[in-house]
Amino acid sequence: MSGKVQLGDFLQTRRSQLRPEDLGVPTYGERRRVPGLRREELALLAGVSVSYYTRLEQGQSLNASPQVLDALARALRLEEAERLHLHNLARSARAAGRGRRPAPERVTAATGQLLDALGDVPAIVTGRRGDVLAWNRLGHALFAGHLDPDSADRPAERPNMARLVFLDAHTRELYAHWRGKARAVVGNLRLVAGQYPDDAALHELVGELSAKNADFASMWADHRVKACAVATYEMRHPLVGPLTVTQQTLSQGTGQNIVVATAEAGSPARTALALLARAVTEGAPVRSGAPPRPRRADLT
């Protein structure tokens, strides 16, 4: 999908999600054929002409200044992550290029060292599209113990967190409140799509998930964006039972992230993680087949 289309769709969708009464826009009791603000109402709130805003939403104007984009963000009541996403979309629309398939991602040496240091904490390394590039033994056991632990080493077979959340029954059951996790995954993919508009593999992933899962298609069409830095999830692990963990995403500044799961000291969840760690260390069957071994993709 081109940057121009993404920019127009984002503006139109977010405009339709605002109610005039929430912004103090008078409607004089009239019935509206479509929900949300009209173009002329949003243009007035943002301080731009209706014709200019219409061209921008239709992808016919690519020269919006940062000041105009910020004015639109304020009128649309965007949060900071959404405001930055709007700027990324406008930038990609101006610099539209041909879709290309980037080189395979590999774990950097520094990220590999950090993963080793987190041996007692469930941790996985993900690429910008959510591909699992590496995981420690506890990370594999917590997030995907039913999968081959060696799969992260094989680029063509690497698990993808978005595919797991939407297409894998085990992962869907793993999250007690699956929809919240799913929305976070989609919101993050939206941010990545704005940052890397020419990533052909990302477009293929979105197309696949949209075709195979109606929930994903609906959430993607909503155009919500979300930076998933810290989130708390209630999990239902098949080996150690229910536990509540805080998942933190540590950005490595290269498009790669380390996702770690922690639990409050003295909590039942901390005890559950300790039991899982003991099971992994002692070789308990956290999945069918051989117990997981520590694996990491090639370092660069």
Rank of each mutant, 00 (worst) to 15 (best):
55 R>E: 00
34 V>E: 03
54 T>C: 04
91 R>G: 03
105 E>Q: 14
72 L>F: 08
29 G>P: 09
63 N>K: 12
110 A>S: 14
97 G>D: 02
91 R>W: 06
83 R>T: 15
38 R>F: 07
93 A>W: 03
80 E>V: 15
86 L>D: 00
55 R>M: 06
56 L>E: 13
37 L>A: 01
95 A>Y: 07
67 Q>L: 11
116 D>G: 05
33 R>C: 03
40 E>N: 00
74 R>F: 04
113 Q>D: 14
105 E>C: 01
52 Y>W: 15
66 P>F: 04
90 A>C: 07
70 D>P: 09
24 G>T: 12
72 L>D: 13
22 D>A: 15
46 A>K: 00
84 L>F: 12
57 E>M: 13
117 A>K: 06
63 N>P: 04
110 A>W: 08
90 A>L: 01
98 R>Q: 14
41 E>N: 10
60 Q>R: 15
59 G>L: 07
118 L>Y: 11
112 G>Q: 01
106 R>I: 05
110 A>D: 13
88 N>V: 09
98 R>L: 06
36 G>M: 11
110 A>M: 08
44 L>K: 07
63 N>L: 05
75 A>T: 09
53 Y>N: 01
21 E>R: 14
47 G>M: 01
106 R>D: 01
42 L>A: 05
26 P>E: 02
37 L>Y: 02
104 P>A: 02
80 E>G: 08
112 G>A: 13
74 R>N: 10
98 R>D: 06
65 S>A: 03
93 A>T: 13
25 V>K: 03
95 A>M: 07
79 E>W: 08
82 E>R: 10
